[in-house]
């Protein structure tokens, strides 16, 4: 397996380099400092400045493929809301989102034992119907969600008893990776009814959501970088959170991102150097 052949690096070397770039920071537990950007601080403030005990809808619309980027974000939102004693209503427009909700409820039960089901949080589980679910939620909440995930009537749960439309909630947090997701929440809920909303999305999806900021969407966390900065913002304001290893997951994942990005930049440079040197020699240009 030669490194260089006819101006091309054998792709197996590239794969090996990427494996090392991602694997070594994980094994060595390399972390780097983060400074929260203004966009991340806007998300932080939207959650933090709400009066304690505000009701928040948490939409979890992603699958394990995007969990690498979005799971730390979702957990950070849950921990931040828990710190502020906010009441959480979980819901998923993706069937794969339901297990993610459950794993975050485990965090809530473990780290905030005072949280009581029905009073402080409710799990509505997966709601089939894509954007139509949102159209019904804004007109008649109970029609769409008559029961929670266990079949308990939402009319009997203290947190949802008086809820007729989701516009009665203080904030929507959408953690999503595609369709239906944040775009649909903006189009059918936040924008027509002026509902405050923040989002967390994959780095690939974030650029398309910037168009909604700030009037239709307060702000957005983009990719693992957004998650890491958000975790840092929480730790800066609530230092005890820094002692919790789970609350630093996004920061931990910035190590592989740093080396992975640097490797890609290096490959682009090397690729171009080889391309131009061959072009000068008149080979394969």
């Amino acid at each position: 397996m030669t490194l260089l052949k006819e101006g091309q690096i054998d792709r197996r070397w590239i794969y090996l380099a990427m494996l090392c770039a991602v694997g070594l920071p994980i094994l060595l537990q390399l972390t780097f400092p983060e400074i929260p950007s203004p966009k991340v601080l806007d998300v932080f403030d939207a959650v933090d400045k709400l009066p304690e005990g505000s009701r928040i809808l948490m939409a979890c619309d992603f699958d394990p493929a995007s969990a690498g980027e979005l799971e730390p974000m979702m957990s950070a939102f849950v921990r931040h809301c828990g710190t502020k004693n906010h009441k959480l209503i979980f819901l998923a427009l993706w069937p794969q989102g339901a297990p993610v909700i459950k794993s975050n409820i485990v965090i809530l039960n473990k780290e905030f034992p005072e949280y009581e089901y029905g009073k402080d949080y409710v799990n509505l589980g997966y709601q089939p119907g894509n954007e139509v679910v949102l159209k019904v939620l804004v007109t008649d909440f109970k029609k769409q969600c008559s029961t929670d995930v266990d079949g308990t009537s939402t009319s009997t749960l203290p947190l949802t008893r008086d809820l007729t439309k989701i516009q009665q909630l203080s904030l929507v947090i959408s953690v999503s990776t595609g369709n239906p997701g944040t775009t649909e929440w903006v189009q059918y809920v936040a924008s027509p009814f002026g509902m405050p909303m923040v989002a967390g999305t994959t780095a690939v999806q974030a650029p398309s959501l910037y168009a909604y900021i700030p009037r239709q969407l307060i702000s957005v966390l983009g990719g693992i970088k957004g998650a890491a900065e958000y975790e840092q913002a929480i730790i800066d304001h609530y230092p005890t959170m820094g002692e919790n290893n789970g609350a630093r997951e996004g920061l931990r994942r910035m190590g592989p991102q740093l080396l992975g990005h640097l490797l890609i930049v290096m490959l682009i440079v090397v690729g171009n150097v080889l391309y131009f040197s061959q072009k000068e020699k008149g080979v394969g240009a």
Partner: peptide
């Protein structure tokens, strides 16, 4: 994707 992107970065991203 990480592996395919790194390979594509070397082969396709030419100025």
């Amino acid at each position: 994707l990480a592996f395919f992107i790194s390979s594509a970065a070397f082969r396709a991203f030419r100025a």
